[in-house]
Nucleic acid binder design. Sequence first.
DNA 1: CCTTTTTGTTAAAACGTTTGCACAAATCAT
DNA 2: ATGATTTGTGCAAACGTTTTAACAAAAAGG
Lengths: 353, 353
Amino acid sequence: MSVTIKDVAKRAGVSPSTVSRVLSNHPRISHATSEKVRAIMQDMGYHPNIMAKSLVSKTTQSLGVILPKPAEELFLNTFFMELIRGIVAQANRSGYDVVLSSGSSEQEEVDAVSRLVYGGRIDGAILLYSRKNDPVVDFLSRNQFPAVLVGRSEQHSNMITVDTDNIQAAADATRHLIQMGHRRIGFVSGPPELVVSVDRMEGFKRALQEAGLEYRKDWIVEGEFLQESGYRAMSFFMNLPERPTALVVVDDMVSFGILRGLYELGYRVPEDVAIVSFNNIALSELSTPPLTSIDIGIYHLGYTASQALIQSIQDKNKVDETIHYQRHIVPHRLVLRESSMFSPSAPMSPPTL
Amino acid sequence: MSVTIKDVAKRAGVSPSTVSRVLSNHPRISHATSEKVRAIMQDMGYHPNIMAKSLVSKTTQSLGVILPKPAEELFLNTFFMELIRGIVAQANRSGYDVVLSSGSSEQEEVDAVSRLVYGGRIDGAILLYSRKNDPVVDFLSRNQFPAVLVGRSEQHSNMITVDTDNIQAAADATRHLIQMGHRRIGFVSGPPELVVSVDRMEGFKRALQEAGLEYRKDWIVEGEFLQESGYRAMSFFMNLPERPTALVVVDDMVSFGILRGLYELGYRVPEDVAIVSFNNIALSELSTPPLTSIDIGIYHLGYTASQALIQSIQDKNKVDETIHYQRHIVPHRLVLRESSMFSPSAPMSPPTL
DNA sequence: CCTTTTTGTTAAAACGTTTGCACAAATCAT
DNA sequence: ATGATTTGTGCAAACGTTTTAACAAAAAGG
């Protein structure tokens, strides 16, 4: 059907091996033949058959990405899409394709991955999430298959990881509020079993201590990464006899819930309560008021994951001894918007101009 | 390295062909050998090599999905993610993998696709969008490569297409408002060069005429699929001497802009203006007030696209004569929420209980 | 000028499957 | 029983590459 390396060879009056070498820029090929063969390839519309190539080279030039199943939530959807775009962009740039896979149960997921891995369809894998005790992570780790985890997992310390420095990020967010003059700051956290929640809380704590402020356990609220959790947290804080003047919130969606609740109760943001949150999703600049948020560079996370994985694949082919365990940190940045643009008059000192 | 069909054959004391036939459930294989071979495969941990299989069968069991590049906008991101999930779910169920590709320029996109197609990495392709004169569509069509377009394109009528019946959907939305008692209804459209805008406008028009209401050109506003367009449209309508009591809006994001504008000017929704819009993104139920919106079943669109493509691939392998041109319509449904839950008192007749 | 090295090319094996053809054994008609 | 069919299995070619080893020709070294 389609034109093969042999067809080109015949037409050019050389052997198939020569054509193959032209393709791979073999040093010992004469300029003359190279040119000639290339011309003929062009002319005949030759395209190398990827399968044949993979078969012999035992490398597929493609990465597997394991899709998490639920992802019903808006934030997750945009998060994953952004991530995938980053992954694909970098992969393609390096000549890799990206194969998507998913399963509707954990078992199905493992089956799918093992088919990809054992069947030799992918050279490495990227996991977009990590549950506490993920059988897929387990499987990949057991097989010493090149893989990178986006977001930290404590499960297997011998895996390559791409992540945000959440402690640092939370500290940055908190410092910003302190700098604005806030002294009474609360924290709205996510599920305590997620590393991201724990880390962000830790960063919050550190920034407070570093500024000599009291870290009050009763100003910490835990919840989900959902609007409703924000709403509840807001009620909690507003019913306190002594209220914080600012909140650090673990996620933008949660902040939206807070914003809404405050609005309903007639409070103003940032005058009554200032807010800083995380993830800087596209919507954050559209809320009322726009949210100050830590941009964690989702696209960049994906991009870095791809890069690290490809690196690891190529290293593995070379030196088999040094298994590169790495932890990549993608830089974040604080994006200032209206929700934190207010300085409360500190009780002791007059407001500065 | 890994265990091949030959290893299994040797261990089982049969020929490789027999093992292969066991794998493919060949009818002429005895139950006894089948059992024995299967046991050994299990025991040795055999997994078929996909590349080798593809090479000889000339089929890769994978679909290509071409990612649009920009997709910066929130809605697009969630839209595409949903779509992709649908595509992958159905593909995996049918034993297909999904290969993602993208390019940062049109030329790169075509290159990437042609590599996938000519290199024999994919059996079919799904296009998630369609620009006016898309070179990728062109390429696929020229090569008679199995492909499906999500969303209509008039460019090549010989392509398989998966779409919403936007005319019908818009008519449904409009009828709902009419049924609620509205007689003065405006329409906020998208870019006139997009088929989706045109179709929804057509549906709107038909529903009006069918109800004997006047179709007023001066109550149509065109814009982008962005919040800002909604805001502008709102200003326009609110400054009219004679104002509509309800609006049909081409997209949820646009509705958000309208909602915001109305709120700023002190109008109430749905009491002053009722709103019905399209796409029912996750956020629609979270806005103030929640939006009545046409759910177009994005996941389902992806799901259907996969299905149609796989069908077409398999048909192509069988009967080469009948090129199945198809147009698949995915059902939509009106999701009722607060933004349309108000009946204006009609000027002539008293409100009914 | 003869040996050694370098340069350019090729033949053939290998990668792990599938499948058409052949063929023996078993089963079926008559 | 004997020919016709069916059933179960194996041989070998094919899929389109890459790559090792071999080798002739050309260039270099003395």
